[in-house]
Design a protein around this nucleic acid. Structure first.
Lengths: 333, 333
DNA sequence: AGCCAGATTGTAAGCGCTTACAGAATAACA
DNA sequence: TGTTATTCTGTAAGCGCTTACAATCTGGCT
């Protein structure tokens, strides 16, 4: 069943059928109706490969993420996929796994599928340390590269980021103003957004005359248990803190556990702030105050920007989206 | 840059290049090496569309799921995607959204992409009530349909399911043996696995001489808050229960919240059992005893079965995987 | 009726790859 | 060395679609 069957049956040429298929206006209303009817009758579906061959594109976007089982990224994938579909695009998903083992290989695999663009979801894709981003910059010459929560200044690369700096600054300031003096800061990675977050924390302290103490800032695996253990360890080593800010809700969950084990009143003796306002922050008791990073908005904006790039319109190289602090039960300011 | 460039540069015909590309053994070692070298040198990547046109397939599997932001499905997607990639297949993701609005349209969209098979992740895809599965059965004549946690008896449809009946029977029996008499049962949907689960619960009660009481079985939205509210409501209406079994961890989280609000000792006064052993069950205090449904095994098995279908080997129409009960802190037997 | 612009349709040449078949080269053997 | 079997390589015909260009058909006008 192909375009010839349709053309024969409709008594027109394949060119006409093709035109109908592509919504070309140079077709009389009568033929258009006729062809549509035949396509319907025959249950005809154009062959995407042939189409792709002819057009050089297949309206497909590659989505790369580290680990779709991370609740935050899972959400992102959902929204990205949905918004792409609304715009008539499909998505090929590609998860590198939590360690981004060979992200470059995966990236090239996606390119080999002749996708029309690649969306990198998650800030871990942009290297801040060894700066191994050449392949992205190179690829961006050929097709749009969209970064969700990452930033790279190069032509063809578009970023949509959450204003992590501002969010963390805001949280830290409110903690300070409500009297917290020793704010522990736990983070998971040195990504673009990771650095912005910690900078917001640091600047807020400085701006309020509080010294930034190295021993209050710690990296931790993105894991409920890991963060609890780390905090126990820190407390045991004599470190004092009356609040803890985290770069991810999972760490904050560990903090709640820590407080429970040590019988600390939350938020009175220990204020806890999560990040991403994921479902995890609603599971604990007390529920964790967290920063809503607006995943949905982030994702729809990313796709919309991409569409305007496709449309030839101008698109901002970087869009910043404001976060929202959601006060729940682990803070009291 | 196409196959002609490579053939010219390597001084062979395009047929030979194509053979090398496809690992055809009828190529001398010398030419093979030469061609590989040239491909490397030129950075040649075959055009997937042309290839798809020629072969009629593109080694791509469609994955349909309701909602990738559900932690359970998110995990499933990750494992499916990974296992497919290991076998040299790509995946096109397609999320219908939590309400499965027009799953049929999505399904056909996937077919129109000429995928080699479709994997339906999540038991909600198979209709048990209005039995609107004709399109699946019809499609299965053309390409393999794989159900993860769903079952449909038709040629070309392969299922991999968790032994939900056994798991729930086991949990209920242990609760009963440890002295629980009034076990509340909360479930989210009437899916294939949903029915098996509740049947396990019912049979365990019957087999131990406990009457199955309708007022102890309730449907509830898959939502932390919804389940808490429902339980408060039930308790307020005078219903007594000393244990609660749930068909999903999110409901169990609500149960923990309920116990906390009503100051019930867990597990002494109220035992709580979750399902899926997702990260949510590790977030609460106390941590929720839950059933590990072996997502990873489920997914790898699904893909492996699919591969053996592709390979022409025999494949079981239904594979059952045993679940594991993970005792944590909300039960004591 | 004759002519022409504009609308509509058809013809045919790709797009880059696979593969059946034919042909060339090589190896094996007498 | 000649013959044949075997291995390797090339030619050319698709796969199903898009699209430039040519051809045809309108209707409005003189």
């Amino acid at each position: 069943m192909n375009i010839y069957d349709v053309s024969r049956r409709a008594g027109v040429s394949i060119a006409t059928v093709s035109r109908v298929l592509n919504g070309n206006p140079n077709v009389s209303e009568k033929t258009r109706t006729k062809v549509h009817a035949v396509m319907e009758e025959l249950g005809y579906t154009p062959n995407v490969f042939a189409r792709g061959l002819g057009l050089g594109t297949m309206k497909t976007i590659g989505i790369m993420c580290s680990d779709s089982s991370d609740p935050y990224l899972a959400n992102a994938i959902y929204y990205l996929e949905r918004q792409l579909r609304i715009n008539g695009y499909d998505s090929i998903l590609c998860c590198t796994g939590p360690f981004l083992d060979n992200k470059r290989t995966y990236f090239e695999l996606l390119l080999s599928k002749r996708v029309d663009a690649v969306i990198l979801a998650g800030s871990k894709f942009v290297e801040l340390i060894d700066r191994d981003n050449d392949y992205l910059i190179e690829a961006a010459k050929e097709l749009p590269i969209m970064l969700v929560n990452g930033y790279l200044d190069a032509p063809g690369i578009y970023s949509t980021v959450c204003d992590d700096y501002e969010a963390m600054y805001h949280v830290a300031r409110r903690l300070i103003r409500s009297g917290r003096k020793e704010i522990l800061y736990l983070y998971t990675s040195h990504s673009y957004s990771g650095l912005n977050k910690v900078q917001g924390y640091k600047n807020a302290l400085s701006d309020h005359g509080i010294p930034v103490r190295r021993e209050l800032i710690h990296q931790c695996a993105k894991d409920v248990t890991a963060s609890r253990k780390l905090m126990e360890q820190l407390a045991d080593s004599g470190l004092k803190f009356d609040a803890v800010m985290t770069s991810d809700d999972s760490l904050a969950v560990g903090a709640v556990k820590f407080a429970h084990i040590r019988s600390l009143a939350v938020p009175e003796e220990l204020a806890i702030v999560g990040y991403n306002n994921s479902i995890l922050s609603y599971c604990t008791n007390p529920e964790i105050s967290s920063v809503d990073t607006k995943v949905e908005e982030l994702c729809t904006t990313t796709v919309n920007t991409l569409m305007s790039v496709f449309g030839g319109g101008s698109a901002p190289a970087k869009t910043v989206i404001a976060a929202d602090f959601i006060q729940k039960q682990t803070t009291n300011f």
